[in-house]
Amino acid sequence: MLEASYVLEGLWITLQMWGGAFLLSVVLAIPVAMLRGSKNPLAKFIGALWAWIARGIPPIAWLIIIYFGLSLGIISEVPVLAAMVGLGIVNSAYIGDSIRSGLESVSNGQWEGAASVALTKKDALFRVVLPQAIPVMLASTAAYSITLLKNTAIASIIGANEMVFYAYNAVQVGADPITAFLTIGIVYLLLTVPVGMFARWLGSRAKRGSERVVY
């Protein structure tokens, strides 16, 4: 039998990993987006290389490498931390894309318009472009964060005591697998469905906003 208290405890760990990995991915994604957007070919290459590697290796492989393969002090000893770092790395590539596509969604005319009234590049970015780009970034970031949330389940494989971990262990000691895993599945749906709706709402809002700007 999978006890409710375990589900709640697992949920708390799931949420911690979700939040921690998300914050880490944003922190990583900003420099990555800046590198990729830079004019310097070397910087550009490094940024692209990061995104390529982060995305090209399966999340589970990242976690196993960090937890079993490397010795990064406490990170490689505490599964929850290893998972946060691994998932944060993977997600940083996606958030980096969000940032870039958000900026690209703002038409060139906006930069030119800002330049035509003699705004500095910095002012153009912060006063003109970002206010239009951020709604677009938020929409795709919200969508990616669903993938991130679901990926936290992988942390159970390296022993992080999140929801799937408790369900798995309960099953190993005789709980009914269908009930146990379905229970956890429902908890995931309770999280992913609203976030998905929120992402779609952000997306439709961002679209309306950008249309207003373009015409």
Partner: peptide
């Protein structure tokens, strides 16, 4: 789509 793939696999 809402279930983590790992959970579906266990299920």
């Amino acid at each position: 789509r809402g279930f983590p793939a790992l959970l579906t696999l266990y299920l």
